[in-house]
């Protein structure tokens, strides 16, 4: 337990020390919203298929998800960096149980990603979507689960690969499909079969689905959310927890066995 906390504390210390990184990752979601929201909504003006909310508001939950995924996957790279710069040796010869170390990495990555996610919530007011305290609490819960899923995925990739280039290659390869097939930019109803399969195995789809249902709860037309959703929020979260376990178990196992 104290090992887990120690790993977590170090990563948080490093994160908070890196001011420029915090600032850029704050600017990122704004930029996405501006691009997706303004750019794409001008294309779609006149369509009323979005349940009465603006396209920007429709995209917003996806941007929250994207921010979390980005942060989590690029925080998990710290495992690769630690190996490359030798610090991992210090940890691996210490009495800290490998399980605690791996879980500490997941905890710190998740915390940092969740922090970044929470920082995107004030954008809701900007988009005319005032959130109640209940909504904020629900969103925080969903974001925490998504952050954990993505960090576990990042850890899994990092244990399979040597070197920073390899990690970046895989992560960049994964990130765009995960985002584009998440339903962030378009409703998932009526997709062709093969794409539907890809959506079903994409954790980002369940996260976006859950986040959108909570964010737009008061704003969208009553029938719209029920008709366009994948699952009720609780089921989405359950599926996400399933992904977490599926990524975490082999990641921890590989981490514990590494030389």
């Amino acid at each position: 337990m104290s090992a887990l906390y120690t790993i977590w504390l170090r990563d948080l210390t490093r994160f908070l020390r890196n001011r420029s990184r915090i600032v850029t990752s704050l600017a990122q979601p704004l930029l996405y919203l501006a691009i997706f929201g303004t750019g794409l909504s001008s294309l779609l003006s006149g369509t009323s298929s979005l349940g009465g909310v603006s396209f920007t508001a429709f995209v917003y939950p996806g941007v929250i998800g994207l921010t979390i995924m980005f942060t989590a996957l690029f925080t998990a790279i710290s495992v690769v960096y630690d190996r490359e710069f030798g610090f991992l040796k210090e940890v691996l010869v210490s009495p800290a149980p490998r399980l605690a170390v791996a879980l500490g990495k997941v905890a710190s990555g998740s915390t940092i990603a969740l922090l970044q996610g929470v920082l995107t919530l004030p954008l809701a007011w900007l988009l005319g979507l005032p959130l109640t305290l209940g909504q904020v609490a629900q969103l925080t819960g969903i974001m925490a689960v998504l952050a954990a899923v993505c960090t576990a995925l990042g850890l899994l990739v990092s244990t399979r690969l040597r070197g920073i280039e390899g990690y970046n290659l895989i992560i960049n390869f994964l990130m765009m499909p995960l985002f584009l097939l998440s339903g962030a930019l378009f409703p998932l109803a009526g997709l062709p079969g093969w794409m539907n399969v890809l959506v079903r195995i994409n954790p980002m789809a369940y996260a976006t689905d859950a986040l959108r249902q909570v964010v737009l709860a008061g704003a969208a037309q009553p029938g719209f959310l029920a008709a366009s959703r994948l699952h009720p929020v609780s089921l989405d979260v359950l599926v996400l927890l399933g992904f977490f376990v599926v990524f975490l178990v082999p990641a921890v196992r590989a981490f514990s066995k590494q030389e």
């Binding site: 090992a3 120690t6 490093r14 890196n18 710069f85 030798g86 210090e90």
Partner: peptide, 19 residues
């Protein structure tokens, strides 16, 4: 090398002591 460059000398020792 196996110290954390981002941390101070004291923080590196602190990490070690905790772990």
């Amino acid at each position: 090398p196996s110290v954390d460059e981002q941390l101070t000398a004291w923080e590196n020792l602190d990490f070690h002591a905790r772990i």
